[in-house]
């Protein structure tokens, strides 16, 4: 994992990866907010039903953002095949390597203020790597499965959504179960996003490498020359 890195810059995140990241950030934010409001609607409106379409718009935004998320997810898989080696990091976790676990422990100790300084990484550090794979890759996939199986309930039997995802509902139990797991998933992602944003800002300031700017420019820069 750890390499001999000197100061200077490495091109890590190619443009499609960066676009995907920010599109994801936007769609996940919209999905979480609208998803929460679908489960817990806003206070009732009065007047003619035909004057309003609030719940309809909220659901529309949710579905539109879900399509953006889904297309992004597929595009990201494609890019993992054709992009640079960092683009594949989200899809493989070197759990069989001892160094991965040792460095993961180091990273945990760094966050617990038990290490004086973190190691330097071109890609994700092991802890971030683990979280990214579990939450974004696996978690995102689960949200897509549950989300599309619920979406298939309104597109109806025989629709492509139903053909591809409809099997999930009887497998899990019933519609309400799938809805609830989808809702639990939302909270997991919300908590992850909070951590992600906090850690990204913190590491950008106190670690030995660039974080936020990297996701904008694609270049990783380092603050010192030590290994």
């Amino acid at each position: 994992m750890q390499r001999e890195i000197n100061s200077g810059a490495v091109y890590v995140y190619e443009a499609p990866v960066r676009i995907w990241h920010w599109a994801n950030a936007l769609s996940i934010t919209l999905l979480a907010i609208t998803g929460y409001l679908v489960a817990n609607p806003l206070p009732s409106l009065s007047g003619e039903a035909s004057d309003h379409f609030l719940m309809g718009y909220i659901r529309f935004v949710h579905f539109a953002a879900a399509y953006i998320f889904a297309v992004g997810f597929l595009g990201r898989i494609y890019w993992a095949m054709v992009g640079n080696e960092h683009s594949r990091q989200l899809f493989k976790l070197p759990v069989h390597r001892l160094t991965f676990w040792r460095e993961l422990l180091h990273e945990v100790r760094w966050y617990a203020f038990l290490e004086k300084e973190p190691k330097k990484y071109v890609g994700h550090n092991p802890l971030a790597h683990l979280f990214m794979v579990v939450i974004i890759t696996v978690g995102g996939f689960c949200m897509l499965l549950t989300g599309f199986s619920l979406y298939a309930e309104q597109t109806g039997l025989g629709s492509w959504q139903d053909s591809l995802f409809g099997w999930l509902i009887p497998l899990v139990g019933q519609s309400q179960d799938v809805r609830l797991w989808h809702h639990w998933g939302m909270w997991v992602i919300v908590v992850f996003v909070m951590l992600h944003v906090y850690v990204a800002i913190r590491e950008d300031i106190v670690s030995r490498q660039s974080i936020i700017s990297t996701m904008i420019s694609g270049w990783r820069t380092f603050k010192d020359d030590r290994p």
Partner: peptide, 27 residues
């Protein structure tokens, strides 16, 4: 889910704030 989720988000938020404070002191 909502009870647990809100509690978790609250805890994480508070933990992040505390962590930030410790970070600042250490820095």
């Amino acid at each position: 889910a909502d009870d647990v989720g809100l509690a978790a988000a609250g805890t994480v938020g508070a933990a992040a704030a505390a962590h930030l404070a410790v970070t600042a002191i250490k820095q």
